[in-house]
Design a binder for these strands. Structure first.
Lengths: 142, 142
DNA sequence: CTCAATGCAAAACTTTTGCACATCG
DNA sequence: CGATGTGCAAAAGTTTTGCATTGAG
C-alpha cells in the first residue's frame, strides 16, 4: 500500500470523528496503529519524533485525550508502571498480560464474547447495567 | 469484635508473610481493608493519618509495595486517573467499573470463575499459559 | 544487638495547563 | 477569517530514592 494511500485512510478515520486532520494527529494515529503492544504517551512521542522532530510531548498528551474523547482510541489500564497506555483498536478484545515480560497482548475471541454475553444475559447483575466486557488474563508466554 | 482482637488478626496476617509487624504496617493494612473501593496511596495516607499523624506518604508507598511483593494485596489497574490503586482482597474476583461515578466495585462470582476455567481448559491459548482471570465490566450503576 | 523499616526531604518522572502563534476548514 | 490545534515552558501532581534514626525480633 503506497504511503499516500494509507495517509488517506487515516484522514478518513479522523474525519469520521469530527476532529481536524492535522499533520500531528495523522502521525500520532499512525504511530498508535504501528507500535506493538500498548504504548505510553512517552513511547508515542519518541516514535513520532522520528518524522516530526518538533512535535511536543504536550501535544501528544492533548491529542491522545481528544482521540479518547472521540472514541478513536481507548485507554488501557496498566497494573504495573505509572503510565497510562493507549490502544487504537476499539473493537471488543481482551488482554493477555505476561508477568515475565510485562507485555500486554491483544486477544480477540468471538466465542468468548458470545459466552460472556450469554452468561450475563441469563443471569443479570445486581444493581449494575453492564456495557462492555474486557477479560484480563495474566500468565506467561510459552 | 474488640479492637485488640482485630489487631491480632492483622498481626497474624503479616506474620504469615514474613513481614515485620510494625505499627505502621498494621494501620496501613487495616485502612486497606476498611476503605471502600480501591484506594490510592494518597487516600490510604489520609486515612492512616487520623490515628498516626507522623506516618509519612513515602512510607505508605514503600509499605504498599512490600505488601504487593508479599502477595498480601494486589494492584488494581485504573483506566482513569494516574494513580495506582490497591486491593486487599486477594481472592479471585472481578471488577465492575461505573463510568458515571468512576467507582470500582468488587464482584465475586464462582459460577463465572468456573465457566472461564472450563472454557480455557477446553480451548487453550496459543503460546500463552494463563494463570489468573479478571473480568472488567464497564457500565453504569442502576 | 542487628537488620529491616521509617521519616524526611530532595529528586525524578508524569501529566496538566496557560498563552501566544499557527493552521485547518 | 474564525475556531481549533500546536509549541513551549511552567506548574501541579505522583512516585522513587538516599540517608540518618528508630524499633521489632
Amino acid at each position: 500500500m503506497p504511503p499516500d494511500r494509507s495517509a488517506e485512510i487515516l484522514r478518513d478515520r479522523l474525519a469520521g470523528t469530527g476532529l481536524r486532520a492535522t499533520r500531528q494527529r495523522l502521525v500520532i494515529l499512525e504511530s498508535l496503529l504501528l507500535l506493538p503492544g500498548h504504548p505510553t504517551a512517552e513511547q508515542v512521542h519518541r516514535q513520532v519524533r522520528a518524522t516530526q522532530p518538533l512535535l511536543s510531548l504536550g501535544t501528544v498528551y492533548k491529542t491522545l485525550d481528544s482521540f479518547v474523547a472521540a472514541g478513536l482510541v481507548r485507554r488501557v489500564a496498566a497494573a504495573q508502571g505509572a503510565a497510562r497506555r493507549f490502544d487504537a483498536d476499539c473493537s471488543a478484545h481482551h488482554h493477555l498480560h505476561c508477568t515475565a515480560t510485562q507485555e500486554i497482548i491483544d486477544y480477540c475471541d468471538p466465542q468468548l464474547d458470545a459466552l460472556l454475553q450469554k452468561f450475563f444475559a441469563a443471569r443479570g447483575l445486581p444493581g449494575f447495567q453492564p456495557r462492555t466486557f474486557s477479560l484480563h488474563i495474566t500468565g506467561t508466554k510459552t
